[in-house]
Write a protein that binds this DNA or RNA. Structure first.
Length: 231
DNA sequence: GAGTGATCATAA
DNA sequence: TTATGATCACTC
């Protein structure tokens, strides 16, 4: 039984990171928050990113808004994912902002999406709304990298969406596009605007967009892990 | 009920 | 302003 204690610095190896992460398994958000000396909100209506930031703190990630991975030196991105009692995702997973201008020459291989999901430390956490945040339990964290098929699926969606953006079709893209990777608004509210390419090649103003992984995609990742875990 | 579009807190 | 962390909540 490994006990969890708050780290005072960044993990220096994948092993060290995984040791810390695995020590969180089985604990509730309330228990972890107490160790971190942080107050648990009664719900996430206002503090939507609270869980992610708590886990960042617990694993020694340096907070802040960087475009790089959470553990850049290890090349690992941290993602908490809310699950129901069957271990299925309750929400889609945000990946990164979508570039809407100056996108000539951007390719999948060097894209932000590819870079972000190259290596992910998934931390599944009970996300059922009927369970108070304080009592939500952390499941087993695990490291994942996309296999050939998953990488191809995401590349195909990414290329389709990026082509539409480059052709000035941003206003015609809805969350229904993309089989596994979708594009949705990502901003503080609907009044936030950024530049994009219009249908005549001109610069237009539109809501910022972000790439999200559909639940069907992350569900397979989780299923595959838990399947291998019990064999 | 599910899913899309909208939204909230915070950092630099 | 744009990025991080995401979940909310209205509409279908």
């Amino acid at each position: 039984m490994k006990m969890f204690s708050m780290p005072k610095d960044e993990p220096r190896s994948i092993n060290e990171l995984m040791q810390r992460a695995e020590a969180l398994a089985g604990l509730t958000l309330g228990e972890v928050a107490e160790l971190a000396r942080i107050k648990v909100p009664k719900d996430f209506k206002r503090e939507k990113g609270w869980t992610g930031q708590l886990i960042e703190l617990c694993l020694g990630a340096s907070a802040g808004s960087k475009t790089q991975q959470d553990f850049a030196q290890l090349g690992i991105e941290l993602k908490t994912i809310p699950i129901d009692d069957n271990g299925k995702p309750l929400e889609t997973t945000y990946v990164c902002f979508a570039p809407l201008t100056n996108i000539a020459g951007i390719e999948w291989q060097t894209s932000s999406v590819k870079n972000k999901i190259q290596k992910v430390l998934w931390v599944p956490i009970d996300g059922r709304r009927e369970v108070a945040p304080q009592h939500r339990c952390i499941a087993t964290p695990f490291l994942w990298s996309p296999d050939i098929e998953q990488g191809n699926q995401l590349r195909i969606d990414w290329e389709e969406l990026m082509e539409m953006i480059s052709l000035g079709q941003i206003e015609n893209i809805t969350a229904r596009h993309g089989q596994y990777l979708q594009l949705r608004p990502k901003a503080a509210n609907g009044k936030v605007l950024t530049n994009a390419i219009g249908n005549n090649g001109q610069i237009i103003s539109t809501r910022p967009r972000g790439f999200y992984l559909r639940k069907e995609f992350t569900e397979k990742i989780l299923q595959n892990f838990f399947k291998n875990e019990q064999t």
